[in-house]
C-alpha cells in the first residue's frame, strides 16, 4: 500500500509540475511575448525599410524574442539569426556568401550596423513615364542626403534611360530654385511624393542633388518643360554599399501569409572597392 501511495504522490507531483510548465513555460521574463498568430505575422512581415534596418541592427530585442525557435544568447548569435531572417528565401543567394556576410556583419569582433544617415545607399525607382506623348521607362536613382542643419531629403542623383540621350533635355537651372528634395519619409510608401514633385514641374529642379549627373539635370529639364510626365513608380529597390566588401539590395516582397514578406534582401554579392565603383557606375549610373 505504501508503494502505491508513494507512486500516487509522485503522480500528483508530476501532474502539478505539468500544470506549472504549461502556464510558465511560454513566457520570457521582462519581455512581452506575442502569441502564436501574432508571432507568425510579426516575424514574417517587415513593413517598412526603417523596420528592416532596426531588425538588421538588432536595435530592439523584441524582434528576435518574438521568434519561436530563436537561438539563445550571446547577442551576436541572435543578431546573426535575425539577419538571416531578413533574406528573401526565394532569392537563391550563394549560401557561402550569405554565411560570410552574416559572420562579418554580426561580429565578433566588430558588429556592423546600417545607418540611414550614411551616404552609401540609394533608392532605384523603376518608373513608367510619358515623354512627348509616348510611353517610356526610366530608372531614377535617389540618394538620402542630410544637410548640415539636420534637414534630410531624398534627392535625384542619376537617371538611367536609353531614350534620354536622344531627347536632349535642357539642363535644369538650379540657381533659380532652392534645393529641397522629397521628404525624408517618402520611401515609406513607395515615393508617392514623387507625383507631387512632377506636378510642380517648374520647380522639379529643386529636387536635384548637388552630385546629380548630367542625365539627371537633362531629365529635370524635360520635366520642367512639361514634356515628361510620371505615370507610376512600378518598383523600388534599395541598394546598400555601406558594408565593407559587400553590396546588397532590399526590395518589398509579396508572399503568402506566414511566409517572409516585406522589405527583404534580394541580392547579395562580394564587392571590393573596384567592384563597388563599377556597381555605382554601371548599375546605378552614378559616377561618370
Amino acid at each position: 500500500m505504501w508503494q502505491r501511495l508513494a507512486g500516487f504522490t509522485w503522480a500528483l507531483l508530476w501532474a502539478c509540475g505539468l500544470a506549472a510548465t504549461a502556464s510558465w513555460g511560454q513566457s520570457i521574463p521582462g519581455v512581452p511575448l506575442p502569441g502564436k498568430p501574432l508571432q507568425k505575422k510579426f516575424t514574417a512581415s517587415v513593413d517598412q525599410l526603417d523596420e528592416f534596418i532596426d531588425r538588421f541592427n538588432h536595435k530592439d530585442p523584441m524582434f528576435v524574442e518574438a521568434f519561436p525557435n530563436r537561438p539563445q544568447r550571446p547577442l551576436w548569435a541572435e543578431r546573426a539569426f535575425l539577419i538571416r531572417t531578413l533574406i528573401n528565401p526565394k532569392a537563391r543567394l550563394d549560401p557561402k556568401v550569405v554565411d560570410a556576410f552574416v559572420k562579418q556583419v554580426s561580429g565578433p569582433p566588430r558588429a556592423i550596423m546600417l545607418n540611414l544617415e550614411d551616404k552609401h545607399w540609394y533608392a532605384a525607382l523603376q518608373c513608367r513615364l510619358v515623354y512627348d506623348g509616348k510611353p517610356v521607362v526610366a530608372k531614377l536613382v535617389l540618394g538620402f542626403e542630410q544637410d548640415s542643419n539636420g534637414v534630410q531629403a531624398w534627392r535625384l542623383r542619376a537617371v538611367q534611360a536609353a531614350w534620354l540621350a536622344e531627347a536632349g533635355g535642357t539642363p535644369a537651372n538650379l540657381a533659380q530654385g532652392r534645393r529641397r528634395g522629397l521628404n525624408p519619409a517618402s520611401h515609406g510608401n513607395g515615393f508617392i511624393a514623387l507625383h507631387r514633385a512632377f506636378a510642380s514641374a517648374d520647380r522639379f529642379g529643386d529636387n536635384l542633388s548637388d552630385s546629380a549627373t548630367t542625365d539627371a539635370h537633362s531629365f529635370a529639364g524635360l520635366v520642367a518643360a512639361q514634356r515628361l510626365k510620371l505615370e507610376r513608380v512600378t518598383k523600388v529597390v534599395f541598394h546598400f554599399l555601406q558594408v565593407d566588401g559587400y553590396v546588397f539590395s532590399v526590395a518589398d516582397v509579396t508572399a503568402k501569409e506566414g511566409e517572409p514578406s516585406g522589405y527583404l534582401i534580394g541580392s547579395l554579392a562580394k564587392a571590393g572597392a573596384e567592384a563597388k565603383r563599377k556597381y555605382r557606375q554601371a548599375g546605378l549610373a552614378l559616377a561618370r
Binding site: 513593413d47 517598412q48 534630410q152 531629403a153 525624408p184 519619409a185
Partner: peptide
Amino acid sequence: SFVSKLRLGPDGRYYGTVS
C-alpha cells in the same frame, strides 16, 4: 504596427510613416 522615426524635411516639417 510600426511607427518610424520622425525626420526633419526640407520644408521644416517632420515626417514619418505608420503601418
